[in-house]
Amino acid sequence: MYTQQVMDHFMNPRNVGEIDGANGVGTVGNAKCGDIMRMFLQVEDGVIKDVKFKTFGCGAAIATSSMATELVKGKTLVEALRLTNKAVAEALGGLPPVKIHCSLLAEQAIKAAVEDYLKKIPGASRTAEEAALVEELERRPVLHEA
């Protein structure tokens, strides 16, 4: 049912763990299946220098968390916010239809962590770009279910 890439990221997940002193942390969950993901970001100068995750969930939840961290590592906050669950699923060679929501969880976890980072910067000291992102997030909020 899972592709080789999914099994690889499940058995050898990249970037598992926590970041001490992370400046962005996001936790999301799927109320129905009960799975939970937490992302830790180390952001410097608008770039994600480091990212780690912890996930309680199915094989796809673990694999999509792992893949999502790979896809945003070294990227700008703007790029991270553009990450879609579709891109995560595609990078894993596809997911079974019942497991699409797991990739959505990964997308939301990244966004929640970015949002946490941005919201921690006092309004006055945000750059114009950061302010624009905060505004965008306010228009399209990340679902916080956990």
């Binding site: 899972y2 499940f10 058995m11 009960g34 799975d35 309680f56 969930g57 199915c58 094989g59 939840a61």
Partner: peptide, 9 residues
Amino acid sequence: VEGESLLLA
């Protein structure tokens, strides 16, 4: 821990 990931492992 979640059951499906246990089964896969």
